[in-house]
């Protein structure tokens, strides 16, 4: 198991390095100098460019960029949004709401999706299954920002239960969660529906499998057999669908954060791209990937826990 985790961790570091390289080249190869502006005097522009190694060839800039990250943990400096402030500091202050929003949406949607999917599978063909399947189609096909608007309209304008925008002055965790409720729900609907849909299919298949029949010939009741034998087996393929969900949720949070004015990384990323603050954009992209890679790692590890074939499979018997 340890070897398996180590392997997954190594793969994650490699992916992160590739992400760093790709985002550096894609963003930095965009035309136009960062400091070109009618208000900036050409000599000052030249000086700034020298200071940031922008006068050097691209591969040297890449070298400085990687060197800075490895030796000093320096992800670059913001030049437009918060001139002079290190990108790392900006990100540091922006991480909590983003991580909270994304992780809570996922953590909330996994058990919800499992419950909904299980109900649909066990009541297969009944009206409740039809209803759930109908809602699943809606939740999968409608993007999260549409739900965000609908939720804002219903629960802040018509029924003033939640604040329309994120309350950045919120002191306590509870107050923070309260103002994050709507964006979390908006983000969670799609993953809930996706998980429920997969689990329903998987569970229906496992419920008709031979080993479930065997379990019932052992003298287990239908409920016992379902819980002990069908459930865990259905979770194995579900773990796989959660990985793409993470990226989906993170992508959705880019827009949803902006709509609810959550001072997270998503809003900052959009701002920095629009402002042409390339250093900050690259740093944000790296952190965004780092968060999703961490979640993927957690899923990979739990995969190993659920399925012994993954855990032991690597070992030669």
């Amino acid at each position: 198991m340890f070897k398996y985790i180590l392997g997954r961790f190594g793969a994650m570091l490699l992916t992160l390095f590739l992400v760093m390289t790709l985002s550096f080249w894609i963003i930095r190869l965009m035309p136009m100098s960062i400091f070109e502006h009618p208000d900036v005097h050409p000599t000052i522009q030249k000086m700034l460019e020298e200071q940031m190694h922008l006068d050097k060839p691209m591969y040297m800039q890449y070298y400085y960029f990687i060197e800075g990250i490895i030796t000093e943990g320096d992800f670059g400096t913001s030049v437009k949004i918060r001139p002079g402030m290190s990108a790392f500091e900006i990100i540091e202050s922006r991480i909590p709401p983003t991580v909270l929003l994304n992780v809570v949406s996922l953590l909330f949607s996994i058990p919800m999706g499992i419950i909904v999917g299980t109900i649909a599978a066990l009541k297969r063909g009944k009206w409740i299954d039809t209803l759930i399947s109908f809602l699943i189609v809606i939740c999968i096909s409608v993007p999260s920002f549409v739900f965000a608007s609908l939720l804002q309209y219903t629960f802040t304008f018509k029924l003033p239960w939640f604040p329309t925008l994120y309350d950045s002055a919120a002191g306590s965790f509870a107050a923070m969660m309260h103002s994050l409720t709507l964006p979390i729900i908006a983000l969670a609907l799609n993953p809930i529906a996706t998980i429920a849909r997969y689990l329903r299919g998987e569970l229906i298949e496992t419920l008709s499998s031979e080993y479930l029949l065997l379990a019932r010939t052992k003298g287990l009741t239908r409920a016992q057999a379902t819980v002990r034998h069908a459930f865990r087996n259905s979770l194995v393929p579900i773990a796989n669908t959660i990985i793409p969900l993470i990226t989906g949720v993170m992508g959705g949070s880019l827009v949803v954060e902006k709509m609810f004015a959550v001072p997270g990384m998503g809003g900052q990323l959009i701002d920095s791209i629009l402002a042409g603050d390339h250093f900050l954009t690259v740093a944000l992209l790296i952190f965004y990937s780092a968060i999703s890679l961490c979640t993927v790692l957690i899923i990979d590890i739990s995969y190993g826990i659920i399925d012994p074939r993954i855990r032991i499979g690597g070992r030669k018997e």
């Binding site: 499998s209 080993y211 065997l214 379990a215 087996n233 659920i306 074939r309």
Partner: peptide
């Protein structure tokens, strides 16, 4: 059962 490959729960000892 006919098929011992599918009659046992694959993830239970």
């Amino acid at each position: 059962f006919q098929d011992p490959l599918s009659a046992l729960n694959p993830i239970m000892k």
